[in-house]
Nucleic acid binder design. Structure first.
Lengths: 260, 260
DNA sequence: ACCGCAGTTCCATCATATGGAACCACCGTT
DNA sequence: AACGGTGGTTCCATATGATGGAACTGCGGT
């Protein structure tokens, strides 16, 4: 079963699935969760985890739950993760900022929220809030909806109502997400804060998955229903440009090789 | 062959080695480098990498070099890696700062340099430089020597001379590193900058490897040869306290489970 | 003390990883 | 333009090492 694409190693494929599950999970995960998530037999999961643990890719906390191993932590510490993404995206964000005059943000999903990791301030006086390090919810932000519309799991639990226009019904949200996926960009009008309108589009990682998003946000007086389609197009354009730039990341540096 | 400790999966063990090598490497790595590094046959490495790549743990840049995959990047983006470490270490650093009055730093190795990720400023007027985001070389910093003394690879190439007291001979450096490992702390006097003395000790990750270090640094008028042993003891004490705090990181959060 | 569940270990079976060699593609040379 | 070399992937027969059901262990709850 589980047809191998070509030249590969079943055991490693499976182990990779487990590791990715562990990394993608918010906190620690129990083995049994991994068993159900992967559909593999207990014994297999157990053995595979043992190997991953031996390799330092995974570790168990005091009560046996599995979490990211020290080797992964080391790696995460050794890079300023934003650096790559932000550095690559920055020029495109600025271009988008100039084109629209509005606040532009780049964000990534983290845990149950959306975190902004780069921002270009609005050229107007009204609208230049600093969103950095001020996470927003998934369900009522344009950025969040972009992630949701492209497969990011919707956090469980109630969807908090932040304004009287916030969508809090899951079915209604689903309908909206379908439109987002279809249209290519997400719009949120006064759902996060009255009078605040945002438009966002997906940035894709090298394997096609959506791991970041770009947004333009400003007051409803400027981002009117009439203006939105045009802005949406620009946002998509910028997001696609970043996606493209990412994919051709030759990772230029590091001229050092052999050498004495 | 290659005795498995107990219950494990050869293929995954090997794949883990490869992945760790990729993560630990500075930039992209060629398959052949991995072949020599791991001692595995070409064909095996090739197959293993194929699986890792399928899992998104690894990817290849435009000219086939292997680097960290999108799933790893996602993870790195989803955490502020320093957060954990810095948050846990902060109180201990502050305590050390109060005790010594000198500038205290926490650092991690990155690429060919040492990066400071947290700092407590000196209570004196002389000495309160901001080291954050100002990487220092491995060979002539106390922090760097801590890493070197505990297995971190010494960057290849010449060891730049920064002052007339900088150790630039590899053999001499080795001797010094042995002392560091032995004594438990590293000292550098005027090798990075004339008159600047630093003392550093290792912080261990949950698996015992040294992945961070703490330092106290100040002018030689205060950190005299006479004062150093006492400071060394305090630095070790703080570093050990952080190590301990790290190991008991139950990762408390995330009460959410099943639920509808 | 008892049940139940999470996780690890056993073990016989055979599916699956293995690795040497052939093969291919690409580059810098003569 | 033909060539040797290097870095990488694919093949394939072999037997090694992964597999998964069941038995086992250890805990935490009632």
């Amino acid at each position: 079963m589980a047809a191998a694409a070509s030249g590969g190693t079943q055991a490693v494929d499976r182990a990779a699935v487990l590791l990715v599950a562990v990394l993608a999970a918010d906190g620690p995960v129990s083995s049994s969760e991994l068993v159900t998530a992967s559909g593999l037999p207990k014994s297999t999961v157990s053995r595979l985890l043992a190997s991953l643990e031996r390799g330092g890719l995974v570790q168990r906390d005091h009560d046996g739950e599995v979490l990211h191993g020290p080797r992964i932590t080391d790696y995460a510490l050794s890079v300023r993760p934003e650096d790559t993404l932000v550095r690559i995206a920055q020029p495109h964000l600025e271009r988008l900022g100039e084109a629209t005059g509005e606040t532009v943000n780049l964000a990534v999903p983290i845990g149950g929220e959306v975190r902004q990791i780069a921002q270009v301030d609005s050229t107007y006086l009204l609208g230049a809030v600093n969103w950095l390090d001020r996470p927003v919810p998934f369900h009522c932000s344009a950025l969040g909806r972009v992630f949701l519309a492209h497969g990011h799991p919707l956090p469980t639990g109630r969807l908090p109502r932040l304004t009287d226009r916030t969508v809090t019904s899951r079915t209604q949200l689903q309908r909206e997400l379908a439109r987002v996926a279809d249209r290519g960009y997400a719009v949120v009008d006064s759902e996060l804060e009255p009078g605040l309108v945002a438009v966002a589009a997906p940035v894709r990682s090298t394997d096609g998955s959506v791991t970041a998003a770009v947004s333009v946000s400003g007051p409803s007086v400027r981002l009117t229903p009439h203006a939105i389609p045009g802005v949406g197009a620009r946002v998509i354009e910028a997001a696609d440009a970043i996606t493209l730039a990412l994919s051709s990341t030759g990772r230029s540096r590091s001229p050092r090789k052999g050498a004495a």
